[in-house]
Design a protein around this nucleic acid. Structure first.
Length: 646
RNA sequence: GCCAAUGUAGCUCAGUUGGUAGAGCAGCGCAUUCGUAAUGCGCAGGUCUGGGGUUCGAGUCCCCACAUUGGCUCCA
């Protein structure tokens, strides 16, 4: 048989050789590293015999698909270990995921940390046993009978849901067999470095209507040191957790009796958000936005028009009995759109008014489920850099581009440009009752958005079922220290709400037309942005948004007066400054300012009081030596004006 | 909401089989006036998240509530 490799070269091998055999002919080292194969573009077992002419790529741990096979085998070993220790456990699904794998089990008792230790040990034993993986296929009826006999009810359901003509394959490793499409590595002996991370609840098939299963998360690496490094990296990342750092640095706190998802922004956190907000509002003004300030609540009648009453009611805080049609029922706003639409409706509009750009620093209230709350990232009251644009059809692309440019400007300024990804969030055409509008209008809008994204060269992934109820979105996503992805910024195109609200403009031809509405944020939610800034910079916020930029450290009582004098001068120059006049050693004061991650410390001793110069220390560079006070101010101003974030 | 873990001084954490609550840091006082990441001594600080129960006795055991944290999106 003729085998062609990715580099274009071709070689003839004996028919029936496996990818591993072929790797062996190239080098034993390569054979050892080979975990799976890609044959004519499809992932396959490296231990399966190959017949005929094919393209072949050998997959190692360096390849995503190689890692996938490796960790998927680890998942099977996890299931094998669990079945040995807890034979009553029923198996659900167990895929490889980014950075690891999991397996879902239905067990009468939940797993404890001790159980995990025992299971991990059993997995090590299974690796020792060097069980060879073996694939076999069964016809549908036999497959169902087989898993029924094993008592695996969930597997029965999985097979029944497979298409009639699907190939139903199983993998055997020693005393364990699992329904699986593969591929796998050739032996459990390959998977020696495993760590089970945690147990979590997870609904069968991800639906809360179904039973909650026990999910065990784990990870596996080819080499011991890679596993150790990964675990250390996770520990390291947790040190940047905004939930910990943000509280330590006194940026925010929470209080039981106020309630879940309702953080208190302490003076330093409030300062950072104020600085961001001023920056955003000024930039938006520069870009032709008009600021509105609209009410935090409205009668339910408004939400009935917008569709929130029918499609977002669970997410709203409602005051009064929502079912009492006679009563005046108010609800806190979960979004700003209907309010800014009322501003648009204030007078009749002409095509000359378009594009009309409204912005608002808008506080919103959403009744998130209790388990969804997370630090400052997911809260029940938050403030966003909201905005709505009413545009004519021929302005959509240009205005969308403007929104995207603004978003990118914000992302770059904050230093997030390497951390974000773009997601084109579409509706779920199998679940249309979640949305307003017709299939045609959704498809039209989504096609338009896709065209714009492609025209602008945006690199994005598509996601079904992630749209807003009124239209598709471009979501700019970012990950927190736990690797969990959240939306930072969003830009949405809406063909529907203008009509619902009777928002029109008179076009050149005298006809009344509905504008297209773009919903967008420029920096997103301030609380979330603060959280991600804390994690990005490990609390050492860039100087231009640092709540305290300079700390003056008086050496002795003799220099108090001079220290206060310098503080006044810096404050008058517009900087945020604190002085430490306590009767403590200078090393102690430095340590404290350093722990608080204050960008600059000025040490004011007798020498400085005498000369008028200042001894400068930076949180990053340590002792920078002595410089004239004016030079320090110039340096600081340059850094702030540049909004640098190195 | 669901599955779990956690909740002791402002913070970080000890607290034995159920026997009357402890440390470090922070705070306050005194001494020290010091040159680039922790000066020393002393003082004060607690409804052990809240409520109920078991018990002669509960921080500890049980139940409920609240809050914090991880997961519930990755589909054989």
């Amino acid at each position: 048989m003729n085998i062609r490799f990715p580099d274009g070269s071709s070689h003839v091998f004996e028919d029936g050789m496996t990818a591993l055999d072929i790797a062996q002919t190239i080098s034993p080292r390569l054979a050892k590293a080979t975990l799976a194969a890609r044959i004519d573009g499809k992932r396959q077992d490296a231990f399966a015999p190959i017949h005929g002419d094919h393209d072949l790529q050998l997959l190692t741990f360096a390849d995503e698909d190689g890692r996938w096979a490796f960790r998927h085998t680890a998942a099977h070993m996890l299931a094998q270990a669990v079945k040995r220790i807890h034979p009553e456990a029923k198996l659900a699904i167990g895929p490889a995921i980014e950075n690891g794998f999991y397996y879902d089990f239905d067990t009468p008792e939940t797993f404890t940390p001790e159980d995990l230790d025992a299971i991990e040990k059993e997995m090590a034993k299974i690796a020792e046993e060097d069980n060879k993986l073996e694939r076999f296929e069964l016809p549908r009826d036999e497959a169902i009978a087989y898993v029924k006999e094993l008592g695996e009810d969930y597997k029965v359901e999985l097979i029944e849901d497979l298409p009639e003509d699907a190939v139903i394959s199983f993998y055997r490793q020693g005393d364990f067999v699992d329904l699986c499409a593969g591929p796998h590595v050739q032996s459990t002996a390959k998977v020696k470095n495993v760590k089970l991370m945690n147990v979590a609840g997870a609904y069968w098939r991800g639906s809360e209507k179904n039973k909650m299963l026990q999910r065990i998360y784990g990870t596996a690496f080819e080499k011991r040191n890679e596993l150790d490094e990964y675990v250390a990296r996770i520990e390291e990342a947790k040190k940047r957790d905004h939930n910990k750092l943000g509280r330590e640095l006194e940026l925010f706190t929470t209080v039981d009796i106020i309630g879940q998802g309702l953080p208190i922004l302490l003076p330093k956190g409030a300062r950072v958000i104020q600085l961001l907000q001023r920056f955003v509002e000024d930039e938006e003004q520069r870009r032709g936005y008009q600021l509105t300030k609209t009410p935090f609540m409205a009668k339910r009648d408004l939400y009935k028009i917008s569709g929130h009453w029918d499609h977002y009611r669970d997410g709203m805080f409602i005051m009064g009995d929502p079912d009492d049609e006679e009563a005046e029922v108010f609800a806190l706003r979960p979004m700003t759109c209907p309010f800014q639409f009322m501003a648009y409706l204030n007078r009749s509009r002409s095509y000359r008014d378009l594009p009309l750009r409204y912005n608002e620093t808008s506080t919103l209230f959403r009744n998130e489920s209790s388990g969804e709350m997370h630090g400052l990232i997911r809260v029940r009251q938050f403030t966003i850099s909201e905005g709505h644009l009413a545009v004519a059809p021929d302005q959509v692309e240009e205005e969308f581009k403007g929104c995207l440019d603004l978003a990118k400007f914000m992302i770059t300024t904050l230093g997030f440009e390497d951390d974000v990804s773009y997601r084109f969030s579409k509706w779920d055409e199998n679940n249309t009752e979640k949305y307003i509008g017709s299939k045609e209008s959704w498809e039209k809008t989504q096609d338009m958005m896709r065209t714009i994204l492609n025209d602008l060269g945006v690199v994005y992934t598509e996601a079904d079922g992630e749209a807003a109820f009124y239209g598709p979105k471009l979501d700019i996503q970012i990950r927190n220290v736990h690797g969990k992805e959240d939306t930072l910024i969003t830009i949405q195109i809406d063909f529907q709400l203008a009509e619902r609200f009777g928002m029109t403009y008179t076009d050149r031809d005298g006809e009344k037309k509905y504008p297209i509405v773009i919903h967008r944020t420029s920096i997103g939610c301030y609380e979330r942005t603060l959280a991600l800034l804390i994690e990005k910079y490990a609390g050492a916020l860039p100087t231009w948004i640092a709540p305290v930029q300079v700390k003056l450290l008086a050496m002795t009582d003799r220099t108090h007066e001079h220290t206060i004098h310098l503080q006044r001068l810096l404050e008058q120059a517009g900087f945020r400054v604190e002085s430490d006049l306590r009767n403590e050693k200078i090393g102690f004061k430095i340590r404290e300012a350093q722990v608080q991650k204050i960008p600059y410390m000025l040490i004011i001793g007798d020498k400085e009081a005498e000369s008028g110069a200042v001894a400068v220390r930076s949180r990053k560079g340590g002792d920078l030596g002595t410089m004239p006070f004016d030079e320090f101010i110039a340096k600081l101003r340059a850094e702030v004006d540049a909004r640098s974030h190195d």
